[in-house]
Write a protein that binds this DNA or RNA. Structure first.
Lengths: 194, 194
DNA sequence: TCAATTTTGTACTATAAAGTACAAAATACA
DNA sequence: TGTATTTTGTACTTTATAGTACAAAATTGA
């Protein structure tokens, strides 16, 4: 039977937590920061997330990953040309605000910050990036089918190259948060698609 | 006049501190971790580094950057072909131990972990990566002179691409600490040099 | 209305970590 | 030998933060 009603939605507080973790990193974020951002108190927090900050980070990353992957897949499915969608995906980076550039890639940040590979949080981030690579590969194979992918390189290798470009951009855009410079960089990188 | 002699060398403890920071990141490293690694006590530490962990990180990064830049320049000067030296530089990544892969790039890690751009530690790391880019550019221009650089792309753009590839590798090598896969990736990337 | 259930807010505890204070130790030089 | 100087090691203080305990609040259904 349902007692006192929750004043928050799990998905929403996970989004808010993800935003703070994204901006500040895992270690630099205190639970107080998180509680303030989520707008809930300790009582509610530790009841919902008995594992504390760690569990919250994992779940926030997981939800963000699921949403991002789902959106990519949705947009890819809707795209006329899957290879063009990859181009579009990268070009969007060069259409961001400075604030967005400063955050980099939340999963790349996690991989860079978390040191040990056995860490579940690290694995979650690595898995997301491998998922992104898999989506690149899927798009490339569809392009091959459609005849819109002209590169002679094997699609799995191309996907790996795209992933590495993405990982690089997560760092480079923080150093050069300049859309024009990023656009030039991205356009040149996209030439490998043929 | 000289009183009790120091039991440590500044350069050496900075190296040891850099190694710990590299492995664990800035926030995840406690001063106790550092003292243990450096092999000195609090008295000595706070006398030598009044700014505490922050100052130590800055100086450790600075020394590591200086040494890395100097080594790059030295090897570049000694190389027969500057463009080949760039190739060699990247190929070395695919000749590393798993442990080395797991550490990624210390400066990329710093850029990823530290959130605000005004942070002196962040600036130090960004400046190093820009210095690396400048060295790439220098090598490319020398190659242009010698006629060993065949790419038609403008050298500054090529240098930026190389930097982005480097930044990406700092993440990608942690996800795929596999020399064969990395080698394939790197060889393909190096094709932009023509 | 009241009993059962669940969530909330707050007050409290525990702990870890940073940083300080200072006496003792180890040197140079008079 | 002894004085000035600098470094060292340790004990102490302070603060921040994570996490717990628990009574009060808010609901449902009998």
């Amino acid at each position: 039977m349902s007692g006192r009603p929750k004043i928050f939605d799990d998905g929403e507080v996970l989004s808010k937590a993800a935003e703070i973790f994204w901006r500040q990193g895992y270690e630099a974020t205190s639970t107080e920061d998180l509680l303030a951002a989520m707008g809930i108190g300790k009582g509610s927090f530790y009841l919902a997330f008995k594992g504390g900050k760690k569990e919250l980070y994992e779940k926030a990353l997981a939800q963000h990953s699921d949403q991002a992957i789902a959106q990519f897949r949705r947009e890819l499915d809707a795209a006329v040309d899957p290879v063009d969608y990859i181009r579009e995906f990268f070009r969007r980076v060069a259409q961001s605000t400075k604030t967005r550039h400063q955050k980099g890639c939340i999963f790349g940040n996690a991989v860079a910050e978390l040191s040990n590979v056995e860490n579940p949080m690290m694995k979650r981030a690595a898995t997301h990036l491998q998922g992104l690579e898999a989506l690149f590969l899927d798009a490339l194979l569809r392009g091959k089918q459609k005849g819109t992918l002209h590169s002679k390189l094997p699609p799995p290798l191309l996907a790996r190259l795209l992933l590495n470009n993405w990982n690089g951009l997560g760092i480079t855009r923080r150093i050069y948060p300049d859309n024009e410079a990023l656009s030039e960089l991205i356009e040149t990188q996209l030439k490998i698609l043929g």
